[in-house]
């Protein structure tokens, strides 16, 4: 580099000024040194922090999402379990109910059968007693009839026939009353 090329009347604008070069290089060197030491690392640190914060936020959101998914899965499983449990209980109840119903029915049927059997027994016993008492009465009546026929009205055939008819009607009314007592007297 040339110095000052200051000719008598001609100035060369391309000629450098040494003082400027020296001061300029020192000034720029110090400037670069100070900025590189104290300012630019701060900027880079802030950029990194900012990036980290954004990426960290995304990561945290992802984690929260995963956690939520996990919980949802868990609840779903629990819910499914509960549902199955409820269904099982319902089935059990239904089965139990049916069993109880069947038992009750069987019991009721047996009870009904028992009642029916007793009723039948009573009926047959009554019938037997009725038949027995009828038999006794028929015997008495037969002897009364014979008495009447023989005692008073054997001479008149017309009276005899009337007597026999009235006897038979009496017997008839008595018999029907004896045979079916529930149907009323007639």
């Amino acid at each position: 580099m040339n110095t000052y090329l200051l000719a008598a009347d001609e100035v060369n604008p391309l000629a450098p000024h040494p003082v400027e070069i020296i001061v300029g290089l020192i000034a720029f060197g110090l400037l670069l040194w100070v900025l590189a030491k104290t300012v630019f690392p701060q900027f880079e640190k802030i950029y990194a922090e900012r990036t980290d914060k954004i990426e960290g936020g995304l990561k945290r959101a992802e984690e929260a999402q995963a956690e939520a998914n996990r919980l949802k899965q868990e609840y779903q499983e629990q819910l499914d379990g509960l549902r199955a449990e409820a269904a099982r209980i319902r089935d059990d109840a239904r089965a139990e109910g049916q069993q109880i119903k069947a038992e009750l029915r069987a019991e009721a049927e047996s009870e009904a059968a028992r009642i029916r059997a007793r009723a039948e027994e009573q009926i047959s016993a009554q019938r037997e007693s009725a038949v027995r008492s009828l038999r006794g009465e028929i015997g008495g009546l037969s002897s009364q009839l014979a008495e009447r026929i023989i005692g008073s009205e054997l001479s008149d055939p017309a009276r005899r026939a009337a007597t026999v008819d009235s006897f038979l009607a009496e017997l008839d009314g008595l018999g029907s009353r004896q045979v079916a007592p529930t149907a009323g007297a007639n």
Binding site: V19, A27, V34, T38, R50
Partner: peptide
Amino acid sequence: TKPVLELVLAAIIVVVLFRLAVRKPQL
């Protein structure tokens, strides 16, 4: 000369402005 002072002044201005920018760095 004037340019010499300007060189020094320029360096000072740049350093001061950048130092102010990072005085209390925040996100």
